[in-house]
Structures are given as structure tokens and as C-alpha cells.
Design a protein around this nucleic acid. Structure first.
Lengths: 231, 231
DNA sequence: TCCGAGTCAAGAGCAGTGCTCGCGATACCG
DNA sequence: CGGTATCGCGAGCACTGCTCTTGACTCGGA
């Protein structure tokens, strides 16, 4: 871990600032050329420095990408949280719709970063541990929603076969015990519906299929709300 | 269009064979290194020729990729059709489950090709017209299913708001008129659920969430069948 | 105040990439 | 048989990520 306090020396301050400049420039390039087109040399050129100097701040291109991924997860999380926070707490359906809308808006605004999060993983790249915390931030919203739904008595105890129950073992670790299997499945499927719809839209797979994606998305998420017993 | 008949001259035959060899070698590399790692020079090396010679057969790397995409769409289509064809025609639910299973199996077997179809599009790459026919092959299965469902009287006429109705204008061109809006939405959402689930699984996003993906997928697709009124 | 230790940007260089072009050799066809 | 179109080859351009050395700078302790 680097220092959490403000940098004391001029050198440390310069380092922190330059690191941030590199990240910002890289993100700008990412937004234009996509992940595959992100070039360390181009970033260095923009900053008026030589390519090898970048390696003083990021040991490899993948590490720079990792940083961008973490930032993207946090940005998406913030966007979703911000949208969801504006809805009255008791309006669970409204909170779901706001979350979905916030996620979609962010994705459409940052298509390449969306691809970084939910698209094809980069070649030999394995998501390091640092990314899983920010990644779970968005899903945390949904989990909170599920817990409140159950607490507020939205009883939905459709029985679940044993094999399906077992498949939830891992996810059980981060969800309150009282939430029934049935509700977890509804939540996972709603989440998949959301990520899938946005991914297909961002990748242009709806281009020749749907006209007026706003209305389509809205209606789909309303139907998904019904599946969540929030109808 | 190239000639549909068998090539007459030795040169034409050699050209056809070598073209196929290039595609096969490229697909092998794709399966190992992914789309970003596909190198024309490496393919040429494997074939014992010089890199520039490849350009006699494919004008650019993107054109080779396009060919791989088309082949992948067709392979996925065949896999899905093959799985679906083994179910008794009258068993609509079974046909849906078989299709879903076939799609998933193919995706897990060819993760990089799946990423080519439903993952992040490559940098400056715009899917050429040639890809849309094979792409719609898979969705054709679902459309046929929807039409039969409606014909067999699985009435599901939940009214759809006007804005949502309008968003279906384009897709209406390839679906029998009699199929109601409600059913189209169910179909699109089921399709999104399928593609989304497989994409998330292929990209490893379920790794720390679900244990026993087979059972999870099966249960999710059964629930989706219920949403399709095939319960 | 001075001086050693740590940090930094720079530059050359390696191995790899997609792609272009001119050169001969060769197979095809009128 | 002769002209033409096709083919593989090799050199070369501009680019990439990354490594290593070199010389200059800053900082903190004596």
C-alpha cells in the first residue's frame, strides 16, 4: 500500500500527480481507441515524456489497465449508487429501476470501459485481487435490495430443487441467511438481464432489432421488476 | 461470390485449399491466444510461408477475422440447431431447453470465438454485411419457437405500452405478424438471459459466485421457460 | 553544509506486429 | 507458343511493449 496521508516531499507529490496524469491520459485514450488500442507510447507522447519513463509508475501495460478497471468499477458503482439514492427508501421498485437506469446510462457513456468490465477479458490478463472489491460494489446494491425485499415481507418461497440450491453455496457467503433461494435466483436473473441488455446494446447487437432503445430498456426493466416480485 | 462449382485449374484448387488452411490455422491460434493475439505472421510461420503471402488471400487481418466470425456464427447455429432437432416437435419447452443447452455448450467449448460474437467488438472493426445472415441463424430458432408457441394457442396477451410497442418496429420485419407484442418481449428477454448468462460464465464472472454452473444454468433456463409461458 | 543514497527521465535497443511494394518464377489461357 | 495474370519471397516502414544503461537530480542524515 502506498501512503494514505498527503505526500510530504516535493518528489512524492510530483509522483502522485504524474501518476494521476498518466491514468487520466490513458483513460482518455481508452475512451477513443478502446482497450486494445491503448498504447503506452502514445500516452507518454501526450505527456511529453519518453515511453520508458512510464515504467517508473506502472510496471507494465497490464498494471495500467488494472488501474483503469478498478477506477471503472468504482465509477460505475458511484453512478448506480447515485441514481439509486435519489429514490425514497420505501419504494423498492423505484430503487431497482433507478439502479438499472444508472447502470445503463454509465455504460452508454463509457462503452469501452464497459467492455473492460463485462466484455471479453484481455488476452493473458487475469483479474487481480484488487479488482474484486470494487467489482462487488455494484452488486452490493442489488443484494441490499433483496435483503430489504425479504425483510419487508415480499414472501416468495417457490421451492428450489436441491441441485440448484447447492449452486448458490458461494453466493450465500455475502447474502443474509434469511433470504430464500427463490429470491436469490430472481436477483441473479435480474442482474444477468440488466448486464446482458446493456452489453448487447453497447456492442450494437440491438441496432437492427430494436428502434428506440430507451423505451425498450424501460419496459424490459419493468418486466424484470415484476419477476423480482416488485410489480 | 466465388465459384460455387469445383475449381477447374490446379491453381484455383491450390488457392481454395490454402485459403482453408489459413482459416483453420488462424482458428487454432484464436482458440489459444484469443482474438487480440491472432497474428498474421504467426499463422504464416505455421504454414511455412512468408507473412506477406497471406495478403494474397486476405486483404487484411480484419478480413481474416471477419471470416472467422462468420464461421463461428455458423458453427454456433449448427450446434444449436443440432441440439434442438433431437427433441420431439411438439415439446416446445424441451426445444427451448435444448437450444439453450446447445448454445451454452458451444460457448464453453469455444470461449474465444464466443467472445468474438458477443464480446467487445475489435477496435475499429465494423461488422460487415456478410456477418448478419449467419448471425440471425441462431435467433431464427427462437423466432420459429415463438411462432409455434403462438400458433399452438399459448395465449399471452398482456398489453404492452405504446412506446414499448414502437420499439419493436424493426424486429417486426422478421416475425410473423400474428405474434403479439407480449410474446416478442418474452422472447427477447429470454434470449438476453441466455446470451447474458453464457457470456458471464465464459468470462468467469460467476467464478466466485456460483458453484456447479451446470445446475445453475439448468435451473435458470427452466425459470426462463416459465417466463416464456412454457412452464 | 556537504555527500551518499535513492529516484528519475532519457535514449538505445530487442523482438514482435500489420502492411506495402518490387522482384522473379510459374501456371494459365487465347 | 507467347502474353498475362497469379504467386511466393524478401526488404522495408511505422508502430508496439519492454529492458537496460547512463547521467542528472532530490532528499535526508552526519
Amino acid at each position: 500500500m502506498t501512503d494514505t496521508t498527503a505526500p510530504r516531499t516535493a518528489r512524492a507529490r510530483a509522483r502522485a500527480e504524474l501518476t494521476q496524469e498518466i491514468v487520466d491520459t490513458a483513460r482518455a485514450h481508452l475512451a477513443v481507441d478502446g482497450a486494445a488500442g491503448l498504447s503506452l507510447r502514445a500516452v507518454a507522447r501526450d505527456l511529453g515524456m519518453v515511453s520508458s519513463a512510464i515504467y517508473r509508475y506502472f510496471p507494465s501495460r497490464d498494471d495500467l489497465l488494472t488501474r483503469l478497471i478498478i477506477d471503472a468499477y468504482n465509477a460505475l458503482g458511484e453512478a448506480a449508487e447515485g441514481a439509486e439514492a435519489q429514490v425514497r427508501r420505501g419504494d423498492l421498485r423505484g430503487r431497482w429501476l433507478a439502479t438499472a437506469d444508472g447502470v445503463r446510462r454509465w455504460g452508454l457513456k463509457h462503452p469501452h470501459e464497459w467492455g473492460l468490465l463485462y466484455g471479453t477479458p484481455v488476452p493473458g490478463y487475469a483479474a487481480p485481487q484488487d479488482t474484486i472489491d470494487p467489482a462487488s460494489r455494484v452488486t452490493g446494491l442489488l443484494i441490499a435490495l433483496l435483503a430489504e425485499m425479504h425483510a419487508h415481507g415480499a414472501a416468495s418461497n417457490t421451492p428450489v430443487p436441491k441441485a440448484a440450491h447447492v449452486s448458490l453455496t458461494k453466493v450465500r457467503a455475502v447474502i443474509p441467511e434469511s433470504v430464500p433461494d427463490d429470491l436469490i435466483f430472481r436477483g441473479l436473473m435480474a442482474w444477468t438481464q440488466l448486464i446482458g441488455t446493456v452489453t448487447l446494446e453497447v456492442n450494437g447487437q440491438f441496432d437492427n432489432v430494436i428502434s428506440g432503445m430507451d423505451a425498450y430498456f424501460d419496459h424490459v426493466m419493468r418486466r424484470t421488476a415484476v419477476s423480482l416480485r416488485l410489480g
